[in-house]
Nucleic acid binder design. Structure first.
Length: 572
RNA sequence: GGGCCUGUAGCUCAAUUGGUUAGAGCAGGGCGCUCAUAACGCCUUGGUUGCGGGUUCAAGUCCUGCCGGGCCUACCA
């Protein structure tokens, strides 16, 4: 039994997340966490809402709420949706928590004490009417290159040219449209990543088993141009962790907050502390997951994230941990994902494009989404969601292959033997061949799951389901029942045990259905089939079961057409 | 502009890292079965691996040039 710390990238607070967000981090992280728990490992699975920064302030202003109220409300909504999707976080924290505030300030203090913080005076665009400094992308104007009139201060979306805000013709605030802008001087703290470059590079070089997607992004930042650049870690906004040096004030930094990307990854640690607080645990209980000097030496730490998050997890967060000169557990493996696309374009929270978590649960149970998203996870490249593919996959894999298997065996047993596991008969060559085939495939499944090969795991699980149908077809208990009822009894008993086996194996992918299957079989035995032959004797003759309703209703063509139409535009 | 990723059957993806005849699922075709959600099983049709060069005994895999798609480019997160 090993100890596994698992974190999912933190979903940003400003709205309901879409399926692309879900499949890029939280869902595969949940798959892995559930699998490891199923194998009996000790797991700490952490996620949280990422609540600070300009977009949260603007989203709150739009609804007229105070930003703290807005975040509290949205956290509640996101937490409810996470539960709806069966995301089995040990704790779903908030980056605005007291724990994170204290820890973020602690790290900043440690970094400053070790000379890894510098103060930099810089000029930034200030909007007098908005009463705030504007990040480059919140300044709009006419592109000097192509004349596009909605170019952003960082880049023109029309001609893709990189810009400085001062390049724009007729610049205006993207928030209010005000042209009442001026350049002001402001002072910020910078994390001296350049001074930590060699240590980070050596650390990245040691990760030879990481996906190319992950290491290549890190190397680009490490080696591009003059190498890893120092990074501003404070901002002139209201909503964030106030800048402090440990628990002391930071002269000259009054009224400023830490940059959201500085405090967000620290929330992985803080959320574990929140877990302790929420469950009556001690500090030692959470620190044994994070501090190598307090028990975390044997922890394996895995992070899940979309590819856009990689630089922060391979560079700035490690720089924070290394620079603190404290023995924090650093990530052992980063599993990163490409993007899920929707009807040829991107899912977009800001544009309301695609299918969102709340709407998804309105129209279908979570397991449908979990299965499709995981079995099509964008691991090797971007992958596309289409309603036709979704309908076909779900109907075939879940309704026909798995659901119908459960249906045929339970209904046959009910009509011939009643709702009790029948007794009699002994295994023949077919049963031994089945157990051998199951063993081979289950071992392969375990290998893929351990390697976080999500799509391959799904394909293997499906193949395991198919074995059940193949067996029934060749064993044909409906025929043997006529000539040799004891043989049919044995075959059916094996079939019922297959349902329990499938419940155990499938739980990481489709936890709700797995639970329904186990309950129908009247068992709480979730023992992992280390020995398949043993596992096929979990349900003994005389054990009562119930015949479940169909586990999965098929998606009809009418439904597909309706949803295709409903979700083709922009979220209201 | 620069960097990285990517292009394999109608569709979604594999291919043990350069090694026999490029494999699965879905969709299509045929046969079988009748327990089951018109479900299941078996068989089967589909590929000049984007295009052109090159290296090699051997290239989907390595190099190079085109063409297409995507991501990142440090002040969105």
């Amino acid at each position: 039994m090993a100890r596994h710390l698992i974190t999912s990238a933190l979903p940003y607070i400003n709205g309901i997340k879409h399926l692309g967000n879900l499949v890029g981090s939280q869902l595969p992280a949940d798959l892995y966490a559930r699998y490891l728990r199923g194998r009996g490992h000790e797991v700490m699975f952490i996620c949280a809402t990422d609540e600070h920064g300009t977009p949260a302030e603007l989203a709150a202003a739009k609804t007229g709420e105070a930003v703290a109220d807005y975040c509290a409300r949205m956290h509640g909504e996101q937490a409810a949706l996470a539960r709806g999707f069966g995301l089995s976080f040990d704790h779903y924290g908030r980056s605005s928590s007291d724990r994170n505030r204290a820890l973020t300030q602690h790290f900043a203090g440690r970094l400053a004490d070790h000379g890894y913080i510098s103060e930099v005076s810089e000029k930034q665009v200030y909007s007098i009417d908005d009463a705030r400094f504007l990040p480059d992308r919140y300044i709009e104007g006419t592109c000097p290159n192509c004349g596009y009139d909605k170019a952003r201060g960082d880049q023109c979306e029309n001609c893709t040219k990189l810009l400085d805000p001062t390049d724009l013709i007729d610049p205006r605030s993207a928030i209010s449209g005000s042209t009442n802008l001026e350049v002001r001087e402001t002072k910020h703290l910078y994390l001296r990543q350049s001074a930590l470059k060699d240590q980070i590079a050596a650390w990245i070089d040691s990760k030879t088993d990481w996906p190319i997607l992950t290491t290549s992004i890190a190397r680009k930042w490490l080696n591009d141009g003059d190498g890893l650049q120092d990074r501003g870690i404070t901002r002139d906004v209201q909503w964030g962790v106030p800048v402090k040096r440990g628990d002391k004030d930071w002269p000259g930094m009054e009224g400023k907050v830490f940059y959201v990307w500085f405090d967000a990854p620290i929330e992985y640690i803080a959320a574990t502390a929140e877990w302790a607080d929420a469950n009556g645990k001690t500090d030692a209980d959470w620190r044994r997951w994070w501090r190598k000097d307090e028990g975390a030496e044997d922890v394996t730490y895995t992070q899940f994230m979309g590819k856009d998050n990689v630089p922060f997890h391979t560079l700035s967060f490690p720089a924070t941990l290394i620079g603190s000169d404290e023995p924090w557990r650093m990530v052992d493996y980063i599993k990163s994902f490409n993007y899920l696309t929707y009807a040829g374009g991107q899912f977009s929270t800001s544009q309301g494009r695609g299918v969102f978590m709340d709407h998804a649960l309105e129209i279908l149970p979570a397991d449908y989404w979990r299965w499709w998203l995981l079995s099509h996870a964008p691991e090797s490249g971007d992958s596309e969601f289409t309603w036709e593919n979704f309908q076909q996959s779900v109907n075939k894999d879940l309704a026909d292959v798995l659901g119908n298997f459960v249906s045929r065996i339970t209904k046959f047993c009910r009509s011939k033997f009643g709702e009790t596991v029948p007794e009699g008969g002994a295994y023949g060559p077919e049963e031994r061949a089945l157990i051998e085939a199951l063993t081979t495939r289950i071992r392969a499944y375990e290998g893929f799951m351990a390697d976080m090969e999500v799509r391959k795991s799904a394909a293997e699980l499906r193949a395991i389901w198919v074995l059940g149908n193949e067996y029934l077809q060749s064993a044909a208990p409906w025929s043997s029942f006529k000539t040799d009822p004891e043989k049919a009894a044995m075959q059916v008993r094996l079939g019922l045990n297959l349902i329990r086996l499938y419940a155990v194996l499938s739980a990481p992918f489709i936890p709700f259905t797995a639970k329904a299957m186990a309950e129908a079989m009247g068992t709480a035995d979730a023992g992992w089939p280390d020995d398949v032959e043993q596992a096929m004797m979990a349900l003994q003759a005389g054990h009562a079961f119930t015949t479940p309703d169909n586990l999965f209703a098929k998606i009809t063509d009418d439904q597909r057409a309706e949803w295709e139409d409903r979700f083709k535009g922009v979220r209201k």
